[in-house]
Design a protein around this nucleic acid. Structure first.
Length: 331
DNA sequence: AACTCGGGGTT
DNA sequence: AACCCAGAGTT
């Protein structure tokens, strides 16, 4: 007697799963916010940001009225800041329109909502029968089917999506999708998966073939690039000199950061106070933090301001600046 | 299809 | 040091 994948998943999920805050609501707005924060970000890292964000912006109208700098300040440290900008832009579209999008097609048109997020919100909030395809699902499908296709290739994704859709419980798509992702996150993990505990082990072709550890296949990895840079720690009384990144800069436009020597050529950096590492995608930065005397006059080419570290949570401050201030014992 | 996102936890 | 995470936008 072969039971459906969805039945095996549902029984396993109902026996116990992580208690995540966005699973306690049926309101599409917080579900949407959670899905944006969860893009390329682990659930455990999202939880405190999610709580703070919804405390500050409890409704889509409250979000729509917010200043972008305030949204970015709450996002500061979570990374991938275009998510926050797109979230705000989409929230303003929704508020202007007067109603929350009601299905996958409408959701998919909003900035920051791609195939995954549209399917996730549509299924979890509205019960629409859409299968999600995220990193967890790709891994579970690759192993269940023992499929060595490159998960970065569109042909593989189309094939895997068809499998997920064939499993989908159309009457309970939200719980089904969450159960499948939960399985990938807590049992069918990238390394050292817990196959003996897996509710799908009897149907897993990779387990039967002994190829679990080789799946999924992901080709075309980019080698990391090492970049060294200096951050200047310039103090006046209790305050620290910050420089705002230009709106035209590709990375983190509008964010406040510590200045570097190229921004203040007249300043002579002192002996380093320390170093820290910072990684994003394939860039590995090594920052040296150097105290320096305040310049007699600040250049006018870039906007500067003085920050009392106690106000650090109120502005969009880069994580590198936070790390530097923490290293210096100022935060 | 390739590339980028100035994160960060886990192994 | 890899690996990769409830991905999306741009070129």
């Amino acid at each position: 007697m072969k039971r459906r994948v969805s039945a095996l998943l549902a029984q396993w999920y109902d026996r116990g799963h992580r208690d995540l805050p966005w699973r306690r609501t049926a309101d599409p707005y917080p579900i949407w916010v959670s899905e944006i924060m969860l893009q390329q970000t682990r659930a455990a890292a999202v939880v405190p940001y999610y709580e703070r964000f919804l405390d500050r912006f409890p409704t889509v109208d409250a979000l729509a009225r917010a200043a972008e700098a305030d949204v970015l300040a709450l996002w500061s440290g979570l990374g991938y800041y275009s998510r926050a900008r797109n979230l705000l832009a989409a929230g303003r579209q929704i508020a202007a329109r007067g109603s929350f999008p009601r299905d996958y097609v409408e959701l998919r048109q909003l900035p920051g909502i791609g195939d995954y997020t549209a399917a996730a919100v549509a299924s979890i909030a509205f019960g629409e029968p859409r299968a999600v395809l995220d990193g967890n699902v790709l891994r579970v499908v690759a192993r269940m089917e023992n499929d060595p296709g490159d998960i970065g290739a569109s042909a593989t994704r189309d094939r895997f999506r068809a499998v997920a859709e064939s499993w989908l419980d159309r009457r309970a798509s939200g719980p089904f999708n969450q159960a499948l992702m939960e399985l990938g996150a807590t049992v069918c993990m990238p390394r050292r998966p817990l196959c003996p505990e897996c509710p799908l082990r009897a149907r897993c072709r990779a387990l039967a073939n002994g190829t679990v550890a080789q799946l999924p296949v992901k080709l075309g990895r980019i080698p990391p690039e090492r970049i060294e840079a200096v951050l200047l720690l310039i103090r006046r009384d209790r305050r620290i000199l910050l420089r705002q990144r230009a709106l035209s800069e590709p990375r983190m436009p509008g964010f406040w950061d510590l200045p570097s020597p190229e921004h203040l050529p007249a300043v002579r950096p002192g002996a380093p106070a320390g170093q820290f590492r910072h990684t994003i995608t394939h860039h590995r930065y090594i920052f040296t933090v150097s105290p320096a005397p305040a310049p007699a006059r600040l250049p006018t080419a870039a906007p500067f301001r003085w920050l009392d570290p106690r106000d650090a949570a109120t502005i969009p401050l880069s994580t590198t600046a936070r790390k530097a201030l923490r290293l210096a014992g100022l935060l």
